[in-house]
Design a protein around this nucleic acid. Sequence first.
DNA 1: GGCACTCACATACTGAAGGTACGTACTCAG
DNA 2: CTGAGTACGTACCTTCAGTATGTGAGTGCC
Lengths: 239, 239
Amino acid sequence: MLRRMSKSSVSRLVPKVPSVPGASRRAAYSASTKRALIDVAEQLFTDHGYAAASLDQIVAGAQVTKGALYHHFSGKQALFEAVFERVESDASKAVKKALKGHRDDPWEKALAGLRAFLEVVQEPRYRRIVIQEGPAVLGYERYREQEERSTFANVLDIVKSVLTAGDWELDEAMQQTFARIFFGAMSSAGEAVSSSDDPIAAAVRVETAIGFILSGFQVLVENDVTLPNAFHEDDSATS
Amino acid sequence: MLRRMSKSSVSRLVPKVPSVPGASRRAAYSASTKRALIDVAEQLFTDHGYAAASLDQIVAGAQVTKGALYHHFSGKQALFEAVFERVESDASKAVKKALKGHRDDPWEKALAGLRAFLEVVQEPRYRRIVIQEGPAVLGYERYREQEERSTFANVLDIVKSVLTAGDWELDEAMQQTFARIFFGAMSSAGEAVSSSDDPIAAAVRVETAIGFILSGFQVLVENDVTLPNAFHEDDSATS
DNA sequence: GGCACTCACATACTGAAGGTACGTACTCAG
DNA sequence: CTGAGTACGTACCTTCAGTATGTGAGTGCC
């Protein structure tokens, strides 16, 4: 029973060795198995969800054993986190790419970002891994840390562009608040789009609605309407 | 070893028997244990999350055995769903209560609903069970069905009030879209509020931001600006 | 008022799945 | 060439959701 790497080395590892030429062969093999684990895990997590995807299935799909998995990851949750980061990273890149070339008109930039996000959110892996399972598996704290430096950063960027369009002086906290609101709006809208019977029509409706909201914003900005800072003073009129 | 109902019947069931006078004693006992299970499950799900809360802990807390649990519920998920429904129902009632007496001014109604929701969303049980774990445990489909007839219904009600304030003719789908967007915005904002270092200040910021967005709406409505229906016709200007 | 019947549980067990301890072949520096 | 460490594989343990089955207290019926 000593035919250890008979199948795996031939059918999976060998074709992917020249990924990083500078590194040693062992490191290349190691990186390859790690990628294979993440690949298979992403697929199974997307298809069946976190709880229903067993580690046995994952390691079988990657043609390794649990020993390999626990060598690369501290546990199932860490593996999920690796998958999560990659999906998030890809999504963030896609949105960021769509944002290029809109440095001049922040409103166009916002709409471009919205369209890109509505595309991303229709990917099953993003829906399942990031939106649906992310908060529960990672816990809201870690979930938020991850979002903070990827998709949410994009939204914050857009929001800042739009807000500064009217020469506004808003503190960081208030900008974050606006970004949170729009981020939540887009996530929810995105979910509605992707789970709709007619995603295209739903996406159009979302664009229309958010476009309208942005129009209201624009009108206020152009008319130099400031934020109702009265809220900051006291709570005099609590019914 | 035949002291079966020695502890349970004395310490827990007896004091709650006269809950439903008309029903038989057996039914009263049964309802009492079911409630106890839901109570304990709600607590443990809130404190430790769905996965980390074991059925053994739950039945121990309710002073029953797994036989009782599986008599009342088909499984762990069904128990969670019962908890979910109650938490959602309570939240919905709280918001609905705050909405009363604002039939005249839809804008005030919206703000009142917002404030009530921001209160609700700070309850740990709502955060954990509905927002954080709900989508993952129930699956997005069932999650949405539940929301549809409770909290989301409230938001839809508010949105319709606001939209019809300007004598608008919007189809149901478009109203639903607006409601989805605001619902997502409020959920996300609520999460930000409840996980903030200073929830009160965060709540004020959210109120300010959403109030501002509503102001933009109001301006558009009062100036008879219609929705950009051009989106519905074609996609002529896709960059 | 006795009696069968059923409901509302309790008890004991099973299988699956995440995690761990330890062994081993292969690689690479020297 | 050789010792050391890496990158796994193997076997086992533990926890936990779910199941099969038993049983006594209520309840309807006569």
